[in-house]
């Protein structure tokens, strides 16, 4: 463990698999690091050398243009060699398991592995089998920690703090890794979390996660500092969870009428991609209070911070 003995450890974790259990000081240190990256990203020369010689593999079992490009750009700006692997199309169809894929990749000696998979716990399983740092870029409905971190950074920049704010997370909580990560992280940072959705989209015992549960937008948004909308998957609108996209928008879609319940300066957030006219009205998405585009910008910054912070924790052998 002699490496980086002169550098203070910003984020003393081997992997980033979940927001659960992160220490508040480490989260703020990471957000600070991301602020630096955000500043760097505004310069003409965006390239740094922090990860020069390191190999980053983006292993995506589920297609995701946005998250994958964000991680790719983050790695490249730090000077890493980045390789993208879209597994869904190749090996899995040939019967190769997650573990097989992991072992194959491990033999290529990557330093950082970014994983997205449709099953909860997949990133954790991988982390047990490989020798490098693993970053969970979404595992089923479980966690998507960099999303929560970029949301926290966006809120902190816009509001100057996260602590004490009331954040309403609205929509398909049940199937959302974004919601789970945010509930954990916002609690760590001292925010008050509300969940707003029809009961069919609220998971069992959600209140025990550290959130207040509402089934009406009026009550849930009342006095909120931040309104965070979630995407509703099309397959859930066909009568299984909600009767139709139209009815859902009527009661739970964010429009200017419902937004009025929140504080006048409430932030409007969405992890993307948006279903305009289902969970959010176009005019709201493009409102001056919307920070949806900034979320994307902070995404790159946060991922740079995470990659750099984890890489610092590599012990030389």
């Amino acid at each position: 463990m002699a490496a980086n003995s002169n550098t203070q450890t910003v984020f003393p974790y081997q992997h980033l698999l979940t927001c659960e259990g992160l220490d508040v000081r480490h989260v703020h240190a990471l957000l600070d690091l991301a602020e630096d990256a955000a500043a760097l990203n505004l310069r003409q020369d965006k390239k740094r050398e922090a990860l020069r010689g390191r190999t980053q593999i983006n292993l995506f079992f589920e297609a995701s243009t946005r998250t994958q490009s964000s991680f790719e750009l983050a790695g490249k700006r730090l000077g890493a060699d980045v390789m993208n692997m879209a597994v869904s199309t190749s090996s899995v169809q040939k019967g190769e398991t997650l573990i097989d894929t992991a072992m194959t990749l491990n033999a290529m000696r990557p330093d950082l592995l970014v994983v997205r998979h449709s099953s909860a716990g997949a990133a954790s399983l991988l982390a047990q089998k490989v020798d490098c740092h693993v970053i969970n870029a979404g595992d089923g409905p479980h966690q998507h920690p960099t999303q929560a971190l970029l949301d926290a950074l966006t809120i902190r920049r816009a509001k100057g703090r996260v602590e004490g704010l009331t954040v309403a997370i609205c929509g398909d909580i049940k199937h959302s890794r974004v919601a789970r990560s945010n509930i954990d992280l916002l609690n760590i940072l001292g925010a008050r979390v509300r969940l707003v959705a029809p009961s069919t989209l609220i998971p069992t015992e959600a209140a025990k996660l550290g959130a207040e549960v509402f089934t009406s937008m009026q009550a849930g948004l009342d006095g909120a500092d931040v309104v965070m909308m979630l995407r509703l998957q099309r397959e859930r609108m066909g009568g299984s969870y909600v009767p139709s996209g139209r009815e859902y928008f009527h009661f739970f879609g964010l429009d200017h009428d419902k937004l009025r319940y929140a504080k006048p300066d409430a932030l409007i957030m969405h992890p993307g991609p948006m279903n305009r006219g289902v969970e959010i009205a176009s005019t709201v998405a493009d409102d001056a209070r919307s920070v949806i585009r900034e979320q994307v910008e902070m995404g790159v910054a946060i991922r740079m911070a995470v990659l750099e912070a984890l890489a610092q924790n590599t012990s030389e052998t």
């Binding site: 909860a120 089923g140 479980h142 966690q143 998971p203 069992t204």
Partner: peptide, 15 residues
């Protein structure tokens, strides 16, 4: 099993 743990783990559960 349905409950807080399943909700945390993001696993489909049954009551």
């Amino acid at each position: 099993n349905a409950g807080l743990l399943a909700t945390r783990l993001g696993l489909t559960s049954v009551n």
